[in-house]
């Protein structure tokens, strides 16, 4: 992956520029992203090692050379272009961790499942919904090994010869740009929590 696609600790998400790995299948569910047998792993990087474990491998366990993410040219991709309804199924946050843990910063699809989208936004992984037309244009760029930029600041995707705007939840955008996740936001709610606790104690005591 190019340097500017690597997330540094505490650094906000401005632009990711990278090659694009393509998984055109629709409805890639959370069991494909990270099979349930790996859910006991609780560290992000550990989960990342098993991203798409069953899709990556042939029966017998060897890596499938045809699987896009196993191909040399996509091994460092920081952007995943996936078929519609990506991330359907379980609420497992491991799905977002596995993608982030193996270096992806953005997933582009025509649509995302609700819980996956929320989990991704909380883990520095940007889910970008695009039109069918843009999807096809990006797939074409990816097939030539071209780079694509996902610009969160300008809410724009750019590639050689094209660009398009995208939309993202404003709150999530702010969190990502500031390099804080929702936990960071909650820390800033500290005074709210303290006020609640003072009130609560009073209620309990009376």
């Amino acid at each position: 992956m190019s340097t500017n696609a690597t997330k540094k600790e505490g650094e906000g998400f401005q632009v990711v520029t990278s090659t694009v790995a393509v998984l055109p299948m629709e409805n890639i569910d959370t069991d494909q992203i990270i099979p349930a047998r790996f859910l006991k792993i609780t560290d992000t990087a550990g989960v990342g090692a098993h991203l798409f474990e069953d899709l990556r491998r042939l029966p017998g366990g060897s890596l499938d050379p045809e699987f896009p993410l196993n191909r040399k040219e996509f091994r460092d991709a920081g952007i995943l272009l996936a078929g519609r309804n990506f991330g359907c199924g379980s609420s497992r946050e491991h799905a977002a961790w596995a993608l982030a843990g193996s270096g992806f910063r953005a997933v582009v699809s025509v649509s995302f499942a609700d819980i996956f989208r929320n989990n991704a936004l909380k883990n520095g992984l940007l889910p970008v919904a695009v039109s069918e037309g843009t999807w096809k244009a990006l797939a074409s760029v990816a097939s030539r090994g071209g780079e694509v930029s996902v610009d969160l600041e300008k809410l724009e995707i750019r590639w050689q010869g094209g660009a398009t705007a995208f939309e993202i939840d404003a709150f999530a955008r702010t969190c990502l740009l500031n390099g804080t996740d929702e936990l960071g936001y909650i820390l800033r709610q500290d005074e709210k929590i303290a006020a609640y606790e003072r009130r609560h104690v009073r209620e309990v005591l009376t």
């Binding site: 609420s91 819980i115 939840d169 709150f171 936001y185 909650i186 609640y196």
Partner: peptide, 21 residues
């Protein structure tokens, strides 16, 4: 509705869900 573990941690802390559309 279903949420992820991080979002739940925030609910445990605040008692409300953040940014619900």
């Amino acid at each position: 509705f279903g949420i992820g573990a991080t979002e739940m941690a925030s609910v445990w802390t605040l008692g409300f869900a953040v940014n619900i559309e």
